Simulated scan of single mutants.
Amino acid sequence: MPAKSKAQQKAAGAALAAKRGEIKKSELKGASKSMEKSMSAGELKELASTKRKGKPEHASKSD
């Protein structure tokens, strides 16, 4: 499942870094914190590796 926005992609990247131990889990906030707890490393990698071209900064609420 590709990321729907740049913000979602950034959050997934931060969560993946925490899951790998590259940053402290206590540094996570908001969406990245819940993503780290609820998603596998593979799912996070897939979201974080989505191409950014053409993505909005934030996804609309209706998506």
Rank of each mutant, 00 (worst) to 15 (best):
G30E: 08
A3T: 04
E22V: 01
A18H: 04
A18I: 11
A59T: 07
K33A: 15
A41N: 04
E22W: 11
L47W: 10
E27H: 08
A3V: 03
S26L: 06
K53P: 00
E36W: 00
A7P: 01
G13E: 14
A11S: 14
L28E: 09
L44P: 08
A12R: 07
K51R: 13
D63H: 05
S26Y: 00
G54P: 08
G54T: 03
A11G: 03
S26V: 12
E43G: 12
K10S: 10
S49P: 01
R52H: 00
K51L: 07
K6I: 15
S49Y: 00
S62N: 05
S62P: 00
G13C: 12
K45Q: 15
L28G: 07
G54R: 11
S32G: 03
E36D: 10
K4D: 08
D63A: 14
H58M: 05
R20M: 10
A7G: 01
Q9A: 12
K55I: 03
S40A: 04
K33Y: 02
S40C: 03
D63F: 03
S40L: 02
K24I: 00
A7L: 10
G54Y: 09
K19C: 13
I23S: 07
S5C: 13
R52Q: 14
A3M: 05
S5L: 09
G13L: 06
H58A: 04
A3N: 04
K10T: 10
I23L: 11
M39Y: 14
G42D: 14
K4P: 00
Q8W: 01
A12H: 09
A12N: 11
S60H: 08
K25M: 10
K29G: 01
M35L: 15
K29R: 14
S5T: 03
K53I: 07
K37R: 15
K29W: 05
L44V: 05
K10L: 12
G21N: 05
K25L: 07
G54L: 08
K4G: 09
S62E: 14
K53R: 12
L47V: 02
K6N: 04
K6L: 15
K61R: 10
G30I: 02
K53N: 09
S38F: 00
L16N: 02
A41H: 00
M1L: 08
K55V: 03
R20I: 05
K33H: 03
K24T: 04
S26W: 01
E43M: 13
E46T: 15
L28D: 08
K29S: 06
A31T: 10
S34R: 12
K6G: 02
S62A: 12
K24V: 00
M35Y: 15
H58Q: 09
K29M: 06
A18S: 13
A11V: 09
Q8Y: 01
A18L: 06
E57G: 02
P2A: 08
E36T: 01
M1W: 02
A41W: 00
K24R: 12
A15K: 02
K4V: 06
S49Q: 14
P56M: 10
G42C: 03
K33E: 09
G42A: 12
K51H: 05
G21T: 04
E27N: 12
E57Q: 10
Q9R: 15
K10C: 00
G30Y: 06
P56F: 09
A18E: 07
A59I: 11
A14Q: 14
E46F: 03
L16G: 03
G21R: 04
A17H: 02
K33L: 14
